[in-house]
Nucleic acid binder design. Structure first.
Lengths: 349, 349
DNA sequence: TGTAGGGCTGTTCACGTTAACAGGCATGCT
DNA sequence: AGCATGCCTGTTAACGTGAACAGCCCTACA
C-alpha cells in the first residue's frame, strides 16, 4: 500500500492538503466515520454529546460532504436538468428562475442546457449532455413541435416533464393558450369590431398554433370573416414587418389586431405609428404574455398574462413526483392565463 | 461478501438491472476494465482492433460513464457554477446563455444559483449551494456593491470571476459603463442641449454608479449645470415614476434625458407621452443596453449596446484560465459599449 | 441475578472509476 | 542466443461515502 504523506498530523508536513473527509472529522471528534455520517444525515441514533462533538469537529475542519462519493454509493445525484430554448426570452427565463428557486428549496441543484437550434440532433445533444451528468430528471422548455416530437425518442431511463409540450405522452404543464386567444378575440368583437386580424408566431411552436386556433375558432363561432394570418418569429422586428405587410396587402381596413406576443406587439405598434394610424382610436391591439414593459407601451397594451413562475414551480412538482416515486397526481396541468385590459383596445370609430 | 443477484448473465434474472459499468463492457469485449477506461479517455496505448471491440461493446450495452465515480477518483467534476441576480433581466439572461453554450463546447456543465435578495447572507447561501456541488469555478453575475463585497469573504478554494464586479480584487469582466455614459452625454450636448438630466439606476449597482459618474463628469468637464438625479430600480414602472417626478419638480425645462437603461426609458417615454411632450422634438432621450425592443419604441431609442454574449464568453475564458491553471492573461477585462443613434435624440427646438 | 431489549457506536464492504505499476510478447540489436 | 525496448494489456489499490450488520453498555423486569 502506497501511503501518501499523512497530512493532518505533523504541523510542518506541507503536503497540498486535500480537503478533509469524514475520517478526518471522525478522528478529531474521537468517533468512527459512521457516526459522522449519521450526524450528517440527521439520523436520530446519535447521542446529543456525540453529535455536538462531531458538529464542532466538522466546523473546525471546514468539512464539506463529498457529493461524488455520496452519489456513487447512493446512486442519487440530487441534480435536475433544464433544457430550454432561447433563455433570453422573458417566458423561458422566468420559468428557469422559478424552477431553480423551487429546486434549491428542496435541496436539488439544477444544471442547464440551451438549445442553439431546433432540430432533433440539437435536442439529442442537450439531452445527452444532461444525462451524462446523471441528472435525476429533466424539465424541457421546448415549445416546438419538432423538439417535443424528438423528446419521445429519448432514452426512457430519466423522467422528463415538458413545458408547453403539446398533447404528447409526456407529463406536461402548460398555459391555456387556446382559452387566452379566445378571450382576446371575444373581447375585440364585443367592442364592436367586425373581425379581428392576427399576427401569429412561428408555425412550429405549440403556443403559436394554439393561439391561432383559439382566434380562428372564435371568429368562426361568431360567424365572422377570417382574415389571412401573417406570421412572425416572436421578435419585435418580425412584428414590425408583419404589421407593415398587413397594412399593405389588406384592401379592407383592419380595425382590430390580435398579436401572438407582446414583443411582436411593440413592433406592430411602431409600424402602425409610422403609418399614422392611431391606437386604439383607429386600430385596437391585443398582445400576449404581459411582459413588464407591456404596461408602458404607448398606449399601454391590453394583453394576456401568463404566470410563468407558476408554470415553473408546477413543472418542478410534477418532475419530483416522478423522481421520488410519489403518487402521481396528474399527467397534464393546464393553467389559465389572465386577461388584462389596458388602453390599446377600444370600440371602432 | 454479500453478492447481489449477478445481473447480466441469466436471461430470466429479472433483477432491476443497474446500468452497466466498465466491467460489464469489459466482459462483453473480452478485455479488462482498464482497457475500457483507456478507450474512453482516448489514451493512445490501445490497439485498433481492441478499441473497436470495446467501442462496439459500449454501444451495445448503452454504456454511460459514471460521473460520480470519475469525480471521486480524479477530484474533478467538470462543472461550473453561475450565480446571478434576476435572470429575467435581459442582460443576465444573455450572459448566462452565452456562458452555457461556451462551457458545453469545452465539455463543462453549468449549474445555476439565483439570488432572491441582495444581502450578504443570500449570496453566501448561493455560493454554498454551488460549492457543495463541488463546482470547479464560479462566475458571479452580481453587479451590486454589497454582493461583490460579500464575494471577498467567500472561501478561497474555488476560483471566482465577477461580471460587472467593480474594482475588487477578483478577476473581472465588465462593460465600460463610464465610457458609454460619457458618450451619451456628449452626444446630447453636441446636439445643442444646455444640459442633460439623468434617471439613474439603484445606487448600490456598479453599473448605475458608473453611468451616473460618466454623465456627471462630462457635464462638469463641459461646464454645464448638473441637474438633480432621480433614481429608479431598472424597471419600466420606476422609469415612469422617475420621469413623472422629474416633470413635476423641475422648474426649468429639461430638454435632454439620459436614462440608465432601456426598460426605464420605455417608462419615461410613456410618462412624457402622457404629459403631452413629444420625443425627440421637445425632449431628447438616450437609453442603455439596446434590448431587442429598443429599436421599436416610439420613437426608436438612441442607446448604448452592451455585448452581453461577449461578456459571457470572456468571463468563461477568464474562469477556465484559473480552473485549468493556464497562464493568466489579464485580471480585468473591459469591453466598450457601442453607441447606437436612432430617433429619440435631436436638437432642441 | 439473569436476561431481554433498546440506545448508541463501530467494522467491513461495495459503489465505478483512474493511477500506478507489473507483466507478456514481439521486434531488433549485439 | 541473449537482452533491451516498445507496445499493449492486466492487476491492484485507492477515492469518500452509506448500507448492513455486529457489538457494547445500560436499564428494566422477572
Amino acid at each position: 500500500m502506497v501511503k501518501r504523506p499523512d497530512n493532518g498530523a505533523p504541523a510542518n508536513a506541507r503536503a497540498p492538503r486535500r480537503s478533509p473527509g469524514m475520517v478526518d472529522v471522525a478522528r478529531l471528534a474521537g468517533v468512527s466515520h459512521m457516526t459522522v455520517s449519521r450526524v450528517i444525515n440527521d439520523q436520530p441514533t446519535v447521542s446529543q454529546v456525540t453529535r455536538q462533538r462531531v458538529l464542532a469537529a466538522m466546523s473546525e475542519l471546514g468539512y464539506r460532504p463529498n457529493v461524488a462519493a455520496r452519489a456513487l454509493v447512493t446512486g442519487r445525484t440530487r441534480t435536475l436538468g433544464v433544457i430550454s430554448v432561447d433563455t433570453t426570452l422573458y417566458g423561458p427565463a422566468s420559468m428557469l428562475l422559478a424552477i431553480e428557486r423551487a429546486a434549491r428549496e428542496v435541496d436539488y441543484s439544477v444544471s442547464i442546457a440551451s438549445l442553439p437550434g431546433l432540430d432533433r440532433r440539437t435536442l439529442r445533444d442537450a439531452f445527452d449532455a444532461l444525462a451524462s451528468q446523471a441528472v435525476e430528471g429533466i424539465i424541457a422548455i421546448t415549445p416546438h413541435v419538432a423538439a417535443t416530437a424528438a423528446l419521445r425518442h429519448v432514452p426512457k431511463d430519466v423522467p422528463v416533464v415538458a413545458v408547453e409540450g403539446g398533447k404528447g405522452p409526456l407529463p406536461t404543464v402548460a398555459v391555456d393558450q387556446y382559452l387566452g386567444a379566445t378571450e382576446a378575440t371575444r373581447h375585440l368583437l364585443s367592442l364592436g369590431h367586425r373581425t379581428v386580424g392576427h399576427i401569429a408566431g412561428p408555425s412550429d411552436w405549440y403556443e403559436a398554433q394554439e393561439r391561432e386556433r383559439g382566434w380562428r375558432d372564435m371568429l368562426v363561432a361568431e360567424g365572422r370573416e377570417v382574415p389571412e394570418v401573417v406570421r412572425g418569429d416572436w421578435s419585435p422586428r418580425s412584428g414590425y414587418a408583419a404589421a407593415k405587410q398587413l397594412l399593405e396587402k389588406t384592401t379592407q381596413k383592419v380595425t382590430a389586431l390580435f398579436v401572438a406576443n407582446d414583443q411582436m406587439a411593440i413592433g406592430a405598434l411602431r409600424a402602425l405609428g409610422e403609418a399614422g394610424i392611431s391606437v386604439p382610436r383607429q386600430v385596437s391591439l391585443v398582445g400576449f404574455d404581459d411582459i413588464p414593459e407591456a404596461e408602458f407601451f404607448s398606449p399601454p397594451l391590453t394583453t394576456l398574462r401568463q404566470e410563468f413562475s407558476e408554470v415553473g414551480r408546477r413543472s418542478l412538482e410534477l418532475l419530483l413526483e416522478q423522481v421520488e416515486g410519489a403518487p402521481r397526481t396528474r399527467r397534464r396541468l393546464v393553467i389559465p392565463p389572465q386577461f388584462i385590459v389596458r388602453d390599446s383596445t377600444a370600440a371602432p370609430e
